[in-house]
């Protein structure tokens, strides 16, 4: 679907694993074209030699040791489908 930007909403929605109706795709295309047109203004900024790091990067380590955490039962407590202590999903291998 062609809009005023390079964005193809229907294609990106597939990448994002969201089904859209044709009407939804059309509406979003128009709205997001406008947002992207506005976002063009960041191209005016000279970013030569600027690093893309805002928060000071630092590594955080912890001991590689076991600790109290969810039991399998707690972890499964919200599962829409479960069996034998596992999440159930549609078959993914042939």
């Amino acid at each position: 679907m062609a809009g005023t930007s390079d964005l193809d909403v229907a294609y990106i929605a597939r990448l994002a694993r969201i089904n859209l109706t044709d009407d939804e795709a059309k509406t979003f295309q128009k709205q997001l074209d406008a947002v992207l047109k506005y976002a063009e203004k960041i191209r005016q900024v000279d970013v030569t030699g600027i690093d893309a790091s805002v928060h000071t990067p630092f590594n955080v380590f912890r001991e590689d040791a076991s600790r109290d955490w969810f039991t399998a039962e707690q972890a499964l407590s919200n599962a829409p489908r479960q069996a034998n202590g596992l999440f159930v999903v549609p078959k993914v291998v042939e």
Binding site: I12, I18, N19, L20
Partner: peptide, 24 residues
């Protein structure tokens, strides 16, 4: 299948603003 599971779950579960922002 699993793609249908993802696609329809997210279609039905998310509202328009969330869908717009995920797509952007």
């Amino acid at each position: 299948d699993v793609l249908d599971l993802y696609g329809r779950t997210r279609e039905e579960g998310f509202g328009p603003e969330v869908k717009r922002r995920i797509i952007l």
